[in-house]
Write a protein that binds this DNA or RNA. Structure first.
Length: 433
RNA sequence: GAGGCCGUGGUGUAAUAGCAGCACAACAGGCUGUGGCCCUGUUAGCGAGGGUGCAAAUCCCUCCGGUCUCCCCA
């Protein structure tokens, strides 16, 4: 840094600038996910980035870490308590109820993409501002919906070229059968408290299900012997889960039944799942997508009892994985050409010519603020365009322009009126070679 | 929230107490109308603040940031 007159500003901790270099990944991901979502009948929805704080207290759960310590809360001048959304589902459900989507044909299938915020210690794959793509099917209890959502996330990752994925799935029951399981779990742990880590001892009272996915070795040993949810599911949950698995079998998805999979959010019922890379040296922060069923949430947020299922995928995590696996995202440089100008007259005519070319379907790069032809072509070279146009004083007077083939160096002078046609010809020929 | 490691031009690095170098990038030039290679020049740095020392990028403290582990999650 030079000695600066004014202080320099920094981005807030855990937040990121998405720079032009990074955009090919984002573009590819956005393109793929919106195509896929629409193809599978999900419609785009955008909800506010701020919601009432209470919405998350009610839905995400007061005992969860997200609500306890990870929310960005603020109070408005008018005295409202608002929160920067830490996850997508509550806002979507709120919108479903508020906009009377109960009156649409059910299930209502929605998708969203955008930023989410959690105040946490940033780490690889975990940021304070991060982006998620979410799918929700509200108003349907059929297990085929659970399977379809898992499937869409799965093929999304496949289409991006990410292979060797593992789908972990479990059922955590419903409000009918979960209390029974919970009791069994508490009873199991009751006389083993001494062997639990301090966190688990605390959690035992609040949310015993979470003892199952504790990473502490001693806790893991205990968890292995613990009663399994699947043995406690009610008939409805059992057949639902069996059905989901049958759909996954039919799709030939490589799922893995993980009886210790428990999600961190309070509203989940029945199906829960995670999709993660298969070979993980450490699979902790590597869940790429996750979700589950939330059959009680709509009612709990003031709507009519409505079953629903959904999930979300972390875009930053996907990009990070693409990078470690050397999966490239193409720079979209279709029909890109470079326009160079020389002299005052030529520069004056530039903007108009560029617009004409754009209308004819070309994407025109230029460096109009430069005067020297040399530095302009240097830039053209950097963009790796196949053709550059050169408009000098002489050409400008004669209503002509030079087309330079950047690979061969061969140039041709053409009339401005024929430019688009000639360019198209040349590009076609180039492609064939 | 707890702990470990780390922080030198825009980027990547060297100097381990004694004049902060190098490479790449950027910008300008090397026939005032032609790119990639090459050459020359210019710009630009010790994360911030404090302490110890004749002397600090180097040692100490605090903060900020990064990264990893625990925790939790996408």
């Amino acid at each position: 840094m030079p000695k600066r007159k004014f202080r320099q500003f920094h981005r807030p901790k855990g937040m990121h600038d998405i720079l032009p270099d990074e955009w090919p990944y984002w573009r590819k991901i956005y393109k793929t996910l919106s195509k896929l979502s629409e193809d599978y009948g999900f419609s785009r929805i955008d909800t506010p980035i701020l919601e009432e704080t209470d919405l998350y207290l009610r839905s995400t759960g007061e005992g969860t870490d997200i609500v306890e310590k990870q929310m960005y809360n603020l109070k408005t001048k008018g005295g409202d308590y608002l929160t920067l959304r830490p996850e997508g589902t509550p806002g979507i459900v709120r919108a479903y109820i508020e906009n009377g989507m109960i009156g649409m044909s059910q299930p209502v299938k929605l998708y969203y993409v955008g930023p989410f915020f959690r105040y946490e210690a940033p780490q690889h794959g975990r940021y304070r501002e991060f982006h998620q793509w979410g799918l929700e099917a509200i108003g349907g209890s059929s297990p085929v919906l659970d399977a379809q959502i898992i499937f869409v996330f799965y093929i999304f990752l496949k289409e991006l070229g990410i292979k060797n994925l593992s789908i972990q799935i479990n059922s955590i029951g419903c409000k009918e059968c979960r209390p029974g399981y919970r009791r069994a779990l508490v009873a199991y742990y009751k006389y083993k408290k001494a062997k639990l880590c301090s966190d688990c001892r605390r959690r035992l009272g609040i949310n015993p299900l979470r003892l199952l996915d504790c990473k502490n070795p001693s806790c893991q040993n205990l968890a292995r012997e613990a009663p399994q949810v699947l043995d406690y599911l009610c008939d409805d949950c059992k057949s639902h889960f069996k059905n989901v698995l049958e759909f996954l079998d039919e799709l030939e998805l490589p799922y893995f039944l993980n009886p210790h999979l428990v999600r961190g959010l309070d509203y989940y019922t029945k199906t829960v799942f995670e999709i993660l890379p298969e070979e993980g040296k450490d699979l902790r922060q590597s869940a790429l997508a996750a979700g589950g069923r939330f059959d009680n949430l709509v009612e709990f947020l003031g709507g009519k009892p409505t079953p629903a299922v959904g999930g979300a995928l972390g875009i930053e995590r996907v990009i990070s994985l693409m990078k470690t696996r050397n999966i490239r995202a193409e720079k979209g440089k279709k029909n890109q050409i470079f326009f160079a100008q020389l002299g005052d007259l030529a520069k004056k005519k530039s903007l108009k010519i560029i617009e004409k070319l754009r209308k004819s379907g070309f994407s025109v790069i230029s460096a109009l603020s430069k005067d020297s032809i040399k530095s302009q072509l240097k830039i053209a070279n950097k963009y790796e365009v196949d053709f550059s146009l050169i408009l000098g004083h002489k050409e400008a007077l004669e209503e002509k322009i030079i087309i330079r083939d950047m690979n061969t160096g061969i140039q041709e002078v053409v009339k401005l009126n024929d430019l688009a046609k000639k360019l198209r010809q040349k590009m076609r020929r180039r492609k064939r070679v």
